[in-house]
Design a protein around this nucleic acid. Structure first.
Lengths: 129, 129
DNA sequence: TTTGACCTTCACACTAGTGTCAACCATTTA
DNA sequence: TAAATGGTTGACACTAGTGTGAAGGTCAAA
């Protein structure tokens, strides 16, 4: 498919898709007329990249970890560099911290929303009575 | 405490603390000489803000939700605006999505790391034998 | 064949957050 | 008193990611 269709299907601006290409995250083939041609499996990939960026993971890190996430489970190249492994460990830690932070704050917001809903329900009931 | 101490204790650059102030997230009192004076409880707050920013939550949203998170559990002002409530619901949803994204990708990374460790251990054992 | 939709690259601008430096004021200590 | 340390504001720069528009090529349909 071409960039416009991928944009719709992945809900990602074409501008961003071109930027991802510039960063080496999604590099499509080119048709003879110069148009970008994307394979269907790249829809999920675009969504994944968007999600990671939105969650605070910079594209340079994404570029590093994407190849690892692509492999089938348990498949690791023989020439895995210890540097990359260190980066991966570091990123795993950062992501865990982000998850904890987001979870705590989301739960607090949820509690507040619930309390607000309850208060509103009480007030509405009181008004109706 | 003054800004330098808060910076150390919260592991946040003074530049960022001043920026948070500019965004209305942490507005300290001022001493007679113009110095910012922070209360100790703001250490956690600074850490919280840093964590949220790092997780992709913009300061404008943080400014909206912070007051809600400050309240003791279940305390909601009588004049809660439905707009704010809508924003909160939206943000709760976004944070949930971020958490899901991060969790999935982190788990994939973790699996990859484990596989790499196992492969490395095998190779080391083989070399040693 | 011309319109319209979609594609190309290039470039400028903008927001968010942070780094950094300049010029200056305050407080403490040698 | 002079130096060191740490505070102040203001400005400029930079990265990351995206918006947007110009100028032009491609292709299908009217």
């Amino acid at each position: 498919m071409r960039i416009g269709e991928l944009s719709k299907l992945s809900n990602t601006p074409t501008r961003s898709l071109r930027y991802y290409e510039e960063q080496g995250l999604i590099v499509p083939r080119r048709l003879e007329n110069g148009y970008r041609e994307y394979d269907p499996y790249l829809i999920d990939r675009a969504i994944q990249i968007r999600g990671l960026i939105d969650s605070g993971v910079p594209t340079k890190i994404i570029a590093l970890i994407l190849p690892c996430l692509d492999k089938p489970r348990g498949i690791v190249p023989d020439d895995i560099q210890p540097e990359l492994l260190a980066i991966l460990r570091d990123e795993r830690e950062k992501m865990t911290q982000r998850i904890d932070f987001l979870t705590r704050n989301r739960d607090s917001i949820a509690t507040y929303i619930d309390a607000a809903d309850a208060a509103l329900a009480r007030r509405t009931a009181g008004t109706a009575a």
